[in-house]
Computed example of a mutant assay.
Amino acid sequence: MSESLSPPVRLVAIPRLAAGGRWRVEAMRSISEPLLLWFTKGQGRITVAGATRGYTPHNAIFIPAGVMHGFEVGAQVFGTAVFFHKVSEMPLPAHPQHLRIREAPVQQELNQLLDQIARELDSATPGSDRAVRCYAGLLGVWLERHTARLGTDAPDAARRLVARFTALLERDFRSGMGIADFAGALGVTATHLSRCCRESCGRPASALLHDRVLFEARRLLSETDLPVNRIAESLGYTSPAYFTRAFGHLTGQSPSAFRRAS
């Protein structure tokens, strides 16, 4: 299928997102595509833009592109992740949304849309690409309607600060900046920033920073052939030895051992 006709969405079973290690979904990170998570079984916690909430079956969580997030995915968690490729083809929320869908007909409507999209994506019959675009458009309408009806409440001052922090962290986590540097850029003290992070997600600001850097380190070790010293440099560490000590302290493995295991 050519780029001009490439599907506007792709579907992945939520348990498959953790293939290769639960760190792939639980650690803080962001992706370049908007994401809709539809949980149909199980429960856990999800952190989006520094705010942590519990999720249960029939929760739909929309995460815009570039927004830092991570969520628990235990053995009993099932559902579908929808990655939006051609966002210009449909209106999508500008901010994260956590929708708790309690009405059975509304749950069924979303399930049917996802089933239809999956069926057409797997089909080789004429017109399947157009059918996917049509169903994806209806999915965008579903999300627009229920965001307007059930959308997340406006965040308080602490959550607004933490959302700004996670956006800045996503941009500059490779720079070697410490929490004092991030706090200064946000016009607050490091103590106040960490206090707000604890209120919003139960973790200090330093934990979010370490989690984001650690995810990128693991990703580079498992998905690239970059030497360890190059990875350390790309993540703002002053020396490979310091990176190796920090990685071992946080994971219990050296970077080389993690790479071999991956």
Rank of each mutant, 00 (worst) to 15 (best):
S88W: 01
E89F: 07
E89H: 00
E89D: 14
P91G: 15
L92E: 06
A94T: 00
H95F: 07
H98A: 09
H98C: 09
L99V: 04
L99P: 07
R100M: 15
R100E: 10
I101P: 01
I101D: 08
E103N: 09
P105C: 11
P105N: 12
P105H: 15
V106D: 04
V106Y: 04
E109A: 13
L110P: 05
N111S: 04
N111K: 10
L113H: 14
L114Q: 02
D115H: 12
D115L: 10
I117S: 09
I117C: 02
A118R: 11
A118Y: 02
R119V: 01
R119H: 13
R119N: 07
E120G: 02
E120A: 05
L121A: 00
D122K: 07
S123N: 11
P126V: 03
P126A: 01
G127D: 10
S128A: 08
D129Q: 14
D129R: 15
R130G: 13
R130P: 08
R130H: 01
R130V: 08
R130M: 06
A131C: 02
V132F: 03
V132Q: 12
R133Q: 03
C134P: 00
C134H: 08
C134L: 15
A136H: 05
A136K: 07
G137I: 14
G137T: 14
G137H: 00
L138W: 14
L139W: 07
L139F: 06
V141I: 12
W142M: 09
E144C: 07
E144S: 15
E144R: 13
E144Q: 14
R145S: 11
R145A: 15
R145F: 12
T147E: 12
T147V: 15
T147R: 08
A148T: 11
R149G: 15
L150D: 15
G151V: 06
G151K: 01
D153E: 14
D153M: 03
A154T: 08
A154G: 05
A154N: 05
A154K: 14
A157I: 08
A157Y: 00
A157S: 11
R159Q: 13
A163Q: 13
A163H: 07
R164M: 04
R164K: 11
F165V: 04
F165N: 01
F165Y: 12
A167G: 04
A167M: 02
L168P: 10
L168T: 03
L169W: 02
L169V: 01
E170M: 02
R171M: 05
R171C: 06
F173M: 05
F173L: 02
S175N: 00
G176D: 00
M177H: 10
M177P: 00
G178I: 00
I179D: 01
D181P: 03
D181A: 08
A183F: 11
A185M: 06
L186W: 03
G187S: 08
G187I: 01
V188M: 00
A190F: 02
H192L: 09
H192K: 04
H192D: 08
H192W: 06
L193G: 01
L193R: 03
L193W: 01
S194G: 02
C196M: 02
C197I: 05
C197P: 12
R198Y: 06
S200A: 10
S200Y: 10
P204R: 09
P204I: 12
P204V: 11
S206A: 04
S206W: 06
S206M: 01
